[in-house]
Simulated assay, not measured.
Amino acid sequence: MSTAARKRLYLQRMGIPVWQRRDDGVQHQATLPDPPDIQEIHATVHLVNSSTASPEGATEDADIRHLDWADLEARVAACERCGLCENRRKTVFGVGDRGADLLVIGEAPGAEEDRRGEPFVGRAGQLLDQMLRAITLERGRRVYIANILKCRPPGNRDPQAEEMSQCTPYLDRQIALIRPRVILAVGRIAAQYLLRTDKPLKALRQQQWHYPESEIPVVVSYHPSYLLRTPGDKGKAWQDLKRLIPLLGAGSATESESK
């Protein structure tokens, strides 16, 4: 099997649309199987990366693990690791306290974030700010906000597995630099990908998790955009937020300033 055919097969297994050209010259979407669960996605991403990664790519991933904040932000701004770079206006690196106690992670920037280069702005960002104030936190102080993807997917579609895989080294380095006390994963896609599970959001919200290969606790809740559409679930989100309070610790404000 050729490299192109093998990669096409892996993309099909992930449920990523594969476009083929008909005899009339018009592209159409090929028939794909049902999307696999998240465990298969992680396994398939590993296969894709193993079969197509160059020595230069492996070296780049290793190099990212040693970048400081300034160099990491510059690397993201110039990133061309996946096709999302072709249509972005701005990369969305992240914003907030770089010694934060709480790291909030969503899945991807939207249209307004793409224009401004900042995550969680607009109405969803305003609601997130209200949620943080409810537990005596605020954007820019003791909180850092980021997404898995640093570029907006076209049409605000869901992130694709390979795109998230290419951005993960950046997020891993942000986590290593911040050393947060706790991570708040908002939304099903972000939670499932970060925790490497296919459990539904309802089940993920009801348990405490740890970021893989670390001792950092992870609390899962609804994405603010979802809460804007479904305000009846704001009470459940408040229950999630209350679980953050003991994990943050009473002395965390002072300690974060010394990180």
Score class of each variant (00 low, 15 high):
108 A>E: 06
111 A>N: 13
112 E>G: 14
112 E>D: 15
113 E>M: 11
114 D>K: 04
115 R>L: 15
115 R>H: 14
117 G>C: 10
118 E>C: 10
118 E>I: 12
118 E>M: 15
119 P>V: 11
119 P>T: 13
120 F>V: 08
120 F>R: 07
121 V>R: 05
121 V>Y: 03
122 G>L: 07
123 R>H: 15
124 A>H: 04
125 G>A: 09
126 Q>N: 15
126 Q>S: 13
126 Q>W: 10
127 L>I: 12
128 L>F: 08
132 L>C: 08
132 L>S: 06
133 R>N: 11
137 L>E: 09
138 E>K: 11
139 R>I: 05
139 R>L: 12
140 G>P: 04
143 V>P: 00
144 Y>A: 10
145 I>E: 13
146 A>M: 06
147 N>S: 10
150 K>I: 10
150 K>C: 06
151 C>L: 14
152 R>G: 07
155 G>I: 00
157 R>Q: 09
159 P>M: 07
159 P>R: 05
159 P>C: 10
159 P>L: 08
160 Q>W: 10
161 A>E: 08
162 E>Q: 09
162 E>K: 04
163 E>W: 13
163 E>Q: 15
164 M>Y: 03
166 Q>S: 12
172 D>P: 02
173 R>N: 09
173 R>Q: 14
174 Q>W: 11
174 Q>P: 02
175 I>M: 05
177 L>V: 06
178 I>V: 12
178 I>L: 11
183 I>L: 07
183 I>P: 05
186 V>F: 01
186 V>S: 01
190 A>N: 03
191 A>F: 00
191 A>R: 00
191 A>Y: 00
193 Y>S: 14
194 L>K: 00
194 L>V: 10
195 L>H: 04
197 T>N: 05
199 K>W: 09
199 K>F: 07
205 R>M: 12
206 Q>H: 02
207 Q>H: 06
210 H>K: 08
